[in-house]
């Protein structure tokens, strides 16, 4: 498990992360969203042991990550801007990683290069951007780490590749309990793959939850009554948003769907529709509830 406690990170006077707290459980596929400059890459660098926090602690498996080769050898970070050794091919990079990481698997490396259709002896400098991303992903997966961090990597892969990578990740989660963190701009993308989601904004984790919980905890209720009514009728029901036109009210409700449905049904409505929300809608309403306008964030 990766644990960040009260982590603060500064660049001169600019505070990138402010007293951030976050726990990433084992075997989890953790999605991290945030606008550009929110601190996603900074956060990943912190937990990879590349940066040292100004305040707070970062531990993995109970030990601090900074300057800890034992722990760092279980972590593989694929950054947003990739770097390969100059004039190297994938075999050279694989040799380096094999030398430095005990868990590197040459077999998997060969499998993946074959599957992805990349030539392992071609100069990586000649690859396209997308191919470079694939190369970096292959190398990272071949390391077979316990912790795998993808910094906006998926955004650059085509759907076929994305799917292939996902398969590998899923397989690793099942077999070795790999923990994966993926950052992205796109909620849609993360929704498919991740089981935990967090929103990073203004240097802190604003929002963190299990995706399934996210999707089920909030739902939309459209209800109409014969008589005139107002918001007060729904006291006792946790409402994030309330809109009414005439005799039809639209509520965004947090709670157990069946319970709330029963509650409202008991009020003898003329019309009752209970609809699930998609992830973006959930985010919007949660953010509004927290006082942010979502468009400011994304």
């Amino acid at each position: 498990m990766i644990s960040a406690k009260n982590v603060t990170m500064k660049f001169d006077d600019f505070v990138a992360l402010n007293q951030l707290n976050c726990d990433i459980p084992d075997s989890c596929i953790y999605g991290l969203v945030g606008s550009n400059g929110a601190g996603k890459s900074t956060f990943l660098r912190l937990i990879s042991g590349v940066y040292r926090p100004y305040e707070g602690t970062i531990t993995a498996d109970g030990e601090p990550v900074w300057e800890n080769p034992k722990v760092k050898s279980r972590i593989m970070y694929v950054p947003d801007e990739l770097y390969f050794l100059p004039q190297s091919d994938m075999n050279t990079m694989a040799r380096l990683y094999a030398a430095v990481y005990d868990s590197f698997s040459t077999e998997r490396f060969r499998e993946l290069t074959a599957t992805f259709g990349l030539k392992p002896d071609a100069n990586i400098g000649t690859f396209s951007k997308g191919m470079k991303r694939q190369a970096a992903t292959i190398l990272a997966l071949s390391v077979m780490p316990k912790y795998l961090f993808f910094d906006e990597t998926f955004d650059g892969l085509d759907p076929v590749m994305r799917n292939l990578v996902k398969q590998v990740i899923y397989s690793d989660v099942c077999e070795r309990g790999t923990t994966t963190i993926i950052t992205s701009h796109s909620l849609r993308e993360l929704e498919d793959t991740c089981d935990q989601l967090a929103l990073l904004h203004k240097g802190g984790i604003v929002f963190e939850s299990d995706i399934q919980n996210l999707k089920t905890a909030l739902f939309k209720v459209q209800v109409a009554f014969a008589d005139t009514f107002g918001k007060e009728r729904f006291e006792g029901i946790e409402t994030l948003s309330y809109a009414q036109t005439g005799s039809v009210a639209t509520l965004i409700v947090r709670g157990d769907r069946d319970t709330v449905t029963g509650q409202i049904r008991a009020m003898q409505p003329l019309l009752l529709d209970v609809l699930p929300l998609n992830l973006e809608e959930v985010f919007i309403y949660e953010m509004e509830a927290l006082g942010y306008a979502f468009k400011d964030i994304m």
Partner: peptide, 8 residues
């Protein structure tokens, strides 16, 4: 970042 990420 690359070199600092190495487990050494």
């Amino acid at each position: 970042d690359f070199y600092h990420a190495l487990p050494q």
